[in-house]
Amino acid sequence: MSNRDPSSHAAAGITVPAIADAALTVIRAAGVDGLTMRVVADRLQVRAPSLYHHVRNKSELLDLVARNAFDQFAADTTAYGQLRTVDEWIELTRSGSLELRAFYAEHPGLAGLIQSKITPDRDRGEGSRAELVRAQIEALVRIGVPEPDARHIFEITARWSLAAVVAADDVFADGLDLFLYGVRARLNALIS
């Protein structure tokens, strides 16, 4: 039998998903600016050094949050697997964008963090964000959009939504409808 310090990461049962969840809880309460290793450790009821076994510093913590933020977002990635038409993709993207805007509103600064962590081919990475990106791109390809175009349209749609997240509710919804009207036209032209 080992005499481990109960605040050690193994004894406390700290996992990477638990750290990500705790960080998102902190962001919901205090915004990205209020996120620190110490505050996350307090949330997990451990000492801050216990976190360093999984995340070396705040920069890695922010990367972890960006990769796993959508674990708490109720995105239905399986719904993208059932899509067969451009109109279905547009409707699911519209409703998902409205839900995502509400999620970002509950987590001050998260949209900016996600925007700052965007990388090419992010669907090929790990975490819930990569799964959601992958599902959306694969849906476009399945309905007949060439993969490079599918990636481009996804990227534009995602960046527009992130940039517009600060707009008032009605302005966001109207802007989203106008934006998706143009996306629908582009998609229809690509698969015709």
Score class of each variant (00 low, 15 high):
112 G>R: 07
64 L>H: 05
94 R>K: 07
87 D>K: 02
126 E>M: 00
170 D>M: 14
109 G>S: 09
132 L>V: 08
150 A>G: 01
168 A>R: 02
154 F>W: 12
123 D>I: 10
67 R>I: 05
4 R>G: 12
70 F>T: 11
71 D>Q: 10
34 G>I: 04
150 A>E: 03
33 D>G: 15
171 V>P: 12
42 D>Q: 14
40 V>N: 01
50 S>G: 06
84 R>Q: 09
171 V>I: 14
94 R>E: 09
190 L>E: 08
27 I>Y: 00
153 I>Q: 10
37 M>I: 07
152 H>M: 14
138 E>V: 10
35 L>T: 02
110 L>Y: 02
73 F>W: 07
50 S>P: 00
158 A>Q: 12
63 D>W: 15
18 A>P: 03
182 G>A: 10
57 N>T: 04
19 I>N: 03
96 G>N: 05
21 D>N: 11
133 V>L: 02
88 E>L: 04
186 R>F: 08
177 D>K: 06
30 A>W: 10
144 G>R: 06
136 Q>W: 06
11 A>F: 13
148 P>N: 10
103 F>D: 04
143 I>M: 09
171 V>F: 13
110 L>V: 02
50 S>Q: 01
172 F>A: 03
183 V>Q: 05
20 A>N: 04
13 G>D: 05
129 R>F: 15
108 P>L: 01
186 R>C: 06
55 V>C: 03
30 A>Q: 11
142 R>T: 13
187 L>K: 05
62 L>N: 13
100 L>Y: 02
168 A>T: 12
191 I>P: 08
59 S>N: 13
103 F>S: 01
139 A>I: 04
125 G>D: 07
161 S>Q: 14
98 L>H: 10
61 L>S: 00
49 P>Q: 05
177 D>R: 08
142 R>N: 06
167 A>L: 15
170 D>N: 06
9 H>G: 11
183 V>P: 09
163 A>S: 14
148 P>L: 13
92 L>V: 04
74 A>Q: 10
140 L>H: 03
2 S>P: 11
93 T>S: 11
176 L>C: 00
145 V>S: 02
112 G>M: 08
41 A>L: 01
1 M>R: 14
84 R>G: 00
70 F>C: 06
11 A>I: 02
119 T>R: 15
105 A>R: 06
71 D>F: 10
125 G>F: 07
94 R>H: 09
75 A>M: 12
122 R>L: 14
69 A>R: 01
163 A>E: 10
30 A>T: 05
100 L>M: 08
144 G>W: 12
165 V>A: 15
98 L>W: 05
9 H>Y: 15
108 P>H: 07
155 E>L: 14
76 D>G: 03
55 V>Q: 01
136 Q>S: 12
2 S>K: 15
15 T>Y: 01
113 L>Y: 03
115 Q>N: 09
182 G>N: 01
89 W>T: 11
33 D>I: 12
102 A>R: 13
80 Y>I: 07
34 G>Q: 04
180 L>V: 04
122 R>I: 13
81 G>E: 04
16 V>R: 09
96 G>W: 13
97 S>D: 08
149 D>E: 10
172 F>M: 09
191 I>V: 15
80 Y>M: 08
60 E>G: 12
